[in-house]
Design a protein around this nucleic acid. Structure first.
Lengths: 203, 203
DNA sequence: CTCGTTTTCGACAGCGTGTCAACTTTTCTG
DNA sequence: CAGAAAAGTTGACACGCTGTCGAAAACGAG
């Protein structure tokens, strides 16, 4: 009756929990194989072993499934913000932070690539992405502000703008990482780190 | 008979030409008022003064209308690439080029903002945007390569990567320009110019 | 006026979504 | 272990949007 809410079932992995996991699993696979738009709720349901109508017992929309997947990944990612939490142009920490996000991105590239277009049709995902992005940008902006106050970062571009530029550069490059080799990935990290260094600290 | 192709009608502005213009006009208005997805072909047709089915005589899809609008704007823009055609870090030319694109973006913000999401459903628009972007990036990359050879630009990031970073930064900022004042616009140009300067020439 | 072209439209078929009430299965409780 | 409540499942239905077709209406030159 309390359809598709989080505090629904009580003990152990009931049949429903398994079904929900099956849907998420099917989504992970299907979203990777074909464009998000061309995957119907019917596809998702059948791939998870139930009829289309059954899907609605677990999720309200297709976008809700994608949001559920994304939120897991971003949760993992939130922990590895070592550079944001540091002071000054610590190149090594910057590289480390970028590296972990890059690897996570590549691992879930199939799902990640759906976000830009899915945002158009799912207000749920749109809200989620907006929240994630502003939280992320805020942390970057705070770090840069700190360094500007300390005199280590240049000041001719305001911290929030620099933060936006950094996410733009990062996201654009990550998008190309779908089938990248480890070497490609390291090169991307290196490029982005160098760019951030130049933008924020001036070389 | 040659429905919805470019070489359809032959002489003068026949009734059909006016209808086509009316559809484009309606689209410009509607896409600005509501999200692209929520505008149906029926909305477009009725706003242009004909029935839904009549629409298909002029355009094959909704995406084709958007593509037609976009291609006009990009054509205008292609002419103002003064910085790409120059040599060295000519800050003034860079500002000039950015300024003209920024103003054009703001003027057509209602339509421009549709592109990212419309690309998901219209292969026609997707192809167009891909072509435009790669042509643009290529010109930027060529300019930077030249400067790298001449020793005016730094070389630790490859020219094509720098070009990608520049478009990413530019596009991200332009997206926020919908209802911007002239001052906002100039500030954006200044920020982007400064960022490019640092990325390409190292300060 | 008249014939061929251009333009318009209603009818139809298809697909994906979301809701509903009825039905079956599982789980809890006395 | 019975019996009720909750969880889970389903087919039928209504809806909205898309795209096609063929017939009809408006148009324009000869």
């Amino acid at each position: 009756m309390t359809q598709a809410t989080s505090t629904r079932r009580r003990s152990g992995p009931s049949k429903g929990d398994l079904r929900e996991a099956a849907i998420l699993d099917a989504a992970r696979r299907l979203f990777g194989e074909q464009p998000y738009e061309s995957v119907s709720i019917d596809d998702l349901a059948r791939a998870a072993g139930l009829s289309r109508t059954g899907f609605y017992f677990y999720f309200r929309t297709k976008g809700a499934v994608l949001t559920a997947l994304m939120s897991r990944y971003w949760e993992t990612l939130g922990a590895s913000h070592v550079w944001f939490d540091s002071d000054g142009p610590s190149r090594e920490l910057l590289r480390e932070q970028l590296r972990s996000s890059a690897y996570l991105w590549r691992e879930h590239a199939g799902v990640m690539k759906c976000a830009p277009t899915a945002v158009a049709t799912s207000s749920e995902l749109r809200d989620f992405m907006t929240r994630v992005k502003s939280r992320q940008d805020e942390r970057a902006s705070d770090k840069i502000s700190r360094d500007q106050r300390d005199g280590t970062a240049t000041t001719s571009i305001a911290a929030p703008r620099l933060a936006e530029m950094i996410s733009a550069i990062r996201d654009a490059r990550y998008t190309q990482l779908a089938n990248a080799s480890d070497a490609d990935l390291e090169a991307a990290v290196e490029d982005i780190a160098e760019a951030i260094q130049r933008l924020v600290y001036g070389g």
